[in-house]
């Protein structure tokens, strides 16, 4: 995760006003940044806007990057701040995806078509994804971010602490509370069933 030589060189070129170099940086990070924005907002349009805003802010903040942390951590930090700002500004529709089919229906279906599940399974799978996303959408912004960063982006606790700019202890308790809230939401939607849980099964809808 260190600032490898190629990244450093790119950053230096950006600082000299080289748009091309910035394009390459965007290329390197767009998948991660876009995915994060998508999980936070729950739809493509907002995700695109947010990721764009994040990159613009990254471009402007670039002179402030001193290389004290890994570049990717720094990028995430900026992105997280953009997300928080946006969420607070717009008081995001709490459940962005419900009744909005456009979010999930492009990529996953194609993947699944090849592994040939029946159409019923397919429909159910999508229904499940939508429910999960809606549950995530009910979490408070910081909790949503914590879950997304840890469970979907796979950041370590240390990295999360650096991204949030807080202590390890805070990360642990924040994530713990976030997962708790998420679990309650799943239970409420019956995505997890208490009785299934107590016998040790995976709590998916059959």
């Amino acid at each position: 995760m260190d600032v490898g030589p190629p990244e450093r060189a790119l950053i230096d070129r950006c600082l000299q006003g080289d748009r091309q170099a910035f394009g390459e940086l965007v290329e390197m990070y767009q998948a991660r940044v876009y995915a994060l924005a998508y999980h936070i907002t729950g739809n493509r349009e907002d995700a695109s806007d947010m990721a764009q805003e994040a990159f613009i802010r990254i471009f402007r903040a670039l002179p402030g990057f001193k290389g004290r942390s890994a570049f990717s951590t720094w990028v995430f930090r900026v992105v997280v701040n953009v997300c928080l700002d946006e969420l607070r500004r717009r008081r995001f529709r709490a459940v962005p995806l419900e009744g909005l089919p456009s979010g999930e229906d492009d990529r996953p279906p194609r993947q699944w078509a090849s592994s040939a599940p029946g159409p019923d399974e397919e429909v159910e799978r999508r229904e499940l994804a939508r429910e999960i996303r809606a549950s995530l959408g009910r979490l408070r912004p910081l909790h949503r971010l914590a879950v997304v960063l840890r469970d979907l982006q796979g950041l370590s606790y240390q990295e999360m602490a650096a991204v949030f700019g807080c202590s390890l202890g805070t990360v642990k308790s924040r994530l713990s509370r976030a997962r708790d809230a998420l679990k309650q939401e799943f239970l409420r939607r019956e995505l997890l069933r208490p009785e299934a849980v107590s016998t040790g099964e995976r709590g998916e809808r059959a």
Binding site: L152, L192, E204
Partner: peptide
């Protein structure tokens, strides 16, 4: 188990490519 189930559920989410 409930916690693990919840985490497993979240992990099912996928993000489309930009």
């Amino acid at each position: 188990e409930a916690l693990r189930g919840a985490v497993a559920l979240v992990k099912k989410l996928e993000a489309p490519a930009p």
